[in-house]
């Protein structure tokens, strides 16, 4: 797993208070990890802070799973 994926996972565990084993790439923040809409807003802000990236609102809306977040950040970092 990439460094980015590891860090994303850690942030999700910390913010949503879920067990690490549940944070699979396919896990949906809302459907699988118990997040509500405010949690996802906060989560995106935490990603922005941790990776020093800007995630505009329309992009943020499309980030619904752990994999979505990892992919988006990896793409930003590669660019």
């Amino acid at each position: 797993m990439s460094e980015i994926a590891d860090k994303v996972k850690k942030i999700v565990v910390e913010h949503l208070g879920v067990e690490e084993s549940k944070v699979t790439p396919e896990a949906s923040f809302i459907d699988d990890l118990g997040a509500d809409s405010l949690d996802t807003v906060e989560l995106v802000m935490a990603f922005e802070e941790a990776f020093n990236v800007e995630i505009p609102e329309d992009a943020a809306e499309k980030i619904t799973t752990v994999k979505d977040a990892i992919d988006y950040i990896e793409k930003q970092k590669a660019a």
Partner: peptide
């Protein structure tokens, strides 16, 4: 300001 938590108001 854009880093303000969405939980600030509640």
């Amino acid at each position: 300001a854009k880093r303000l938590s969405p939980f600030f108001i509640p």
